[in-house]
Design a protein around this nucleic acid. Structure first.
Lengths: 190, 190
DNA sequence: ATTATCTATAGATCTATAGATAATGC
DNA sequence: ATTATCTATAGATCTATAGATAATGC
């Protein structure tokens, strides 16, 4: 007991990081503050010196969770085909704790407060803009709806592949959708 | 108090129907048995003469919730274009209580028990088969992955349109994805 | 007599707070 | 003196059960 301000900042960060993982894994209501604090290596009592309420943690944790997608966005910016393959990879399907917020928390966010929904919307806009700029840049004039189809497919396919209990079907969805999306939206020479 | 067996059957059915609605609206953990029973017009105490556990209700309610999609499947069987339009309509976006289970409970089901996940998988297979049979039946040889893209897009687009706090963006997603999917997967003369 | 439902409650769990403890930092 | 965290707990809520009540159905 008795810790420095620097340590407090570290604790705060660890709480948010653990929450960002576990929320995606178990859903926003799927883990208690006590369990999050236990994983951090602390106790419930300290939590409320870091956050006014559970909702405040949710907002911060979702923001941090979205940042995990920045690596993916950079990869996609360089090469759309590899962005699609990464998004629909077995690794992304299995690694819930670091996965895309849209795929792991879509329904939770739909039921969430307006602050969280607005953050979601802002991120969605950014992702759509990126995809729009990557779709056959020189060929198609009306790329926005195509970017929407592409993004919807990525998210929907990943969710279906996760929810099904049939491992083989899951793999077929991931590989089938990957191939189709690459064919539809990636210039042939890329 | 003191009711007939026929009344019990009705009560059972009402419990399942209320649960099928509220689970889709608020998530599977989003409503308590007490609140479900209150909406049914009964009390908690009676619940366990109908179900061994909460999980049993979840399994039955999800099964019933899936049946709401049978109307949509019949419509789609007749005309793919009108199936797409109905799925991505504002009405389907707004009416959570009767909406497609894949769109309203995908992450909940992913975290659910194997019985529920297997029911989900069975339904998914059926829906994919239907869509496969409807995609340009005479034109394309490899329709299965295309059906997967179509279904993923439908589910993903509906979820994004629900989760965003920007009403205008939501409408753009629904109409944009509808137009693209119709163009991609519906024979021109339909 | 049996049973469908009710009232009441046990036991678990969760959010949030109160007060104690042991360091930090002026 | 201030503060970051701890222990302990209040108050709310949720699942599940026990026992009472008032009908049904042999």
């Amino acid at each position: 007991m008795g810790h420095s301000q620097a340590e407090k900042r570290q604790t705060h960060e660890r709480i948010v990081n653990v929450a960002a993982k576990r929320f995606r894994e178990r859903g926003i209501e799927g883990i208690s503050i006590a369990d999050i604090m236990k994983e951090v290596g602390a106790t419930v009592g300290g939590f409320y010196r870091h956050f006014d309420s559970r909702d405040d943690l949710v907002a911060e944790a979702v923001a941090v969770a979205f940042e995990d997608m920045d690596t993916w966005k950079n990869k996609t910016r360089k090469n759309l085909r590899s962005g699609i393959k990464t998004y629909l990879s077995a690794a992304h399907r299995n690694e819930l704790t670091t996965s895309c917020v849209f795929s792991s928390l879509s329904t939770d966010i739909h039921r969430s407060n307006s602050q969280t929904r607005e953050l979601f919307t802002e991120r969605l806009r950014g992702d759509l803009e990126l995809l729009e700029s990557m779709i056959r840049p020189e060929l198609d004039s009306n790329r926005r709806p195509k970017a929407m189809v592409l993004y919807s497919s990525l998210i929907g396919a990943l969710e279906l592949a996760r929810a099904t209990s049939d491992e083989k079907l899951a793999r077929q969805i991931l590989s089938g959708v990957t191939d189709e999306l690459v064919e539809l939206f990636c210039p042939a020479d890329e």
